[in-house]
Design a protein around this nucleic acid. Sequence first.
RNA 1: CGGGGCGUAGCGCAGCCUGGUAGCGCACCUGCCUUGGGAGCAGGGGGCCGUAGGUUCAAAUCCUAUCGCCCCGACCA
Length: 585
Amino acid sequence: MRYSQAFIHTLFEAPKEAETPSHIFLLRGSYVYPLAAGLYSLLPLGHRAAEKIKRIVREELDAIGGLEVTMPVVNPAEIWKKTGRYFNIGDELIRFKDRREREFVLAMTHEEVVTDMAKQFVRSYRDLPVMLYQIQTKIRDEARPRAGLLRVREFQMKDAYSFHHDFEDLDAYYPKIFNAYLRIFARCGLNATPIEADSGIMGGSGSHEFMLESASGEDDFVICPACGYSANTEKAVGIKPERLPCEDVGAAPAMEKVGTPSVKTIAALMEFFGCSGENFIKTVAYVADGKLVLAVVRGDFNISATKLANYLKAVNLDYAPEKTLFEMGLNAGFLSPFAIDGVRTVFDSSLTGSALYIAGANELDMHLKNVLPGRDFELKETADISEVREGDRCSACGGADLQIRRGIELGHTFKLGTKYTARDSMDVTFLDGSGEPNRVVMGCYGIGVERLLASVIEKWHDEGGMQFPVTIAPYQIILSQLGNQPEVVAMAERLYLKLGLAWEVLYDDRSESAGVKLKDADLIGIPVRVVISRKLEKTGDVEIKIRQTGEVIICPESEFEEKLGVIFKKLEPSTASLPYMAEGA
RNA sequence: CGGGGCGUAGCGCAGCCUGGUAGCGCACCUGCCUUGGGAGCAGGGGGCCGUAGGUUCAAAUCCUAUCGCCCCGACCA
């Protein structure tokens, strides 16, 4: 492709809305063009890179027996009502009516549609297992799109669904998809860290997220440097350091009311009482599926809304509005852990009856000191509902302090189980060998294509621009002709033809100055640059520069194709020594 | 949805406070010239100043409303 014909329009300065590296370079490098918040067109360069990613995804999924399909984005609301997601998902799901007033949704994933297909065609154990996948547009009305392609409202997702005759078969299959994911990311030049993830209201028994560590990410995850345990902070469990027990709990002084005018937060209480967070009891009011619930943790912990929601099996969980509390005679900031009639109260396992605390008094501007859990109130319902903290001891090995990292979620795998095939959902069964009906068991697996593209840039860039891995670069070679003397042009044209036989070449044939051409080549991140100039033409040499390393090789024209072959082989990302999951026989 | 910021040419910005002509750099078009890190000279095209009302003889500028975009947080099957 000749640069002059390639619809590439690089920008010298980035539009001011761009802040993250991938966003800046995608815009400057003429890979994407914004249409509205969270809606982007992929320009020719971006489109080519995305197609490369999709090709890798297809190769890896086909290799484990995946079958590609295409499912509609417009779905009748009916199937979404059947699975309940029509009601459980908020405004993120776009709902609308057609001209005949029939209800539809724009699919944000395709569990309903694929399960509907399975219901039709999976009849016998002989039809299982089967894995169907597609690369299809997904629509999500995100509350806040951000960082260019990292979080958008319309994007392409590779979504895969596997169907099994029982949980054991799903368990046996799961490592294949897990390992295929590791290979996909590795081939795109990324080392993804698989972490244990929360399965949320999707339900199911096991789930992993594949994270790219990055400051531009929006998810925190926990890793143990000693044993390798890693998990989403929503799910991670650490060892909660015990408070030093009272010398004699039995002889502990009785509770005592203390006036604390307008002292509401733990931070303010710490200052007021002059002691650290672990001496307090924090009580927070939530509304879970319409019902008021109190969550109680030790003051030095935060409540994990995800853990609490999971424990309560709540679909919707939100902070209780102050108005609701007020109507019940409660005061935010002075809530107490003491049982209130008719209000469910859940205690975090950080609270034990071994030490005295300061707690809210359920009275405006009042707290209680010398509160002893177990003596002064009953720890009736205890669960792990607090968020893990940096430095908490690893609960898997007990040997090291957990670290919290920030990352981008590249992919997600779920063991769904029978959430969608259950009788009260889509109701999908098959006949086993003895003619008995059995419930189909599912898994689902997603990768966002554009987010993966942006993530590669987050990982691979420098001040000058992008540094694509050879596997997904829109072109493998950029041929830059510096100077327009006839001999130089002739040599460039000759090389363009020759290189085009083996590689995808972008030939910069513009009459721009040398500086412009070299800067643009760096910006758009083509992995290998070949330069022809008057100086080189005279000696019959060509120059090869590797974008990622900056390495420059000058060699005679007669040798350079062979050299390039070696270089490309070396630049191919390796899929060896990834943290593969053991696959059964 | 809460907090903050910004809307003037494709991009980056000035002008607004103190009302009266819309400007600069880059990009784009023509010609000459130039080609190893965002050259040079000459000429040229392009903006109802986000939108709608209001004040005024007169509004990019003052007032009101509204829309859009970005950032932080909440949310995220």
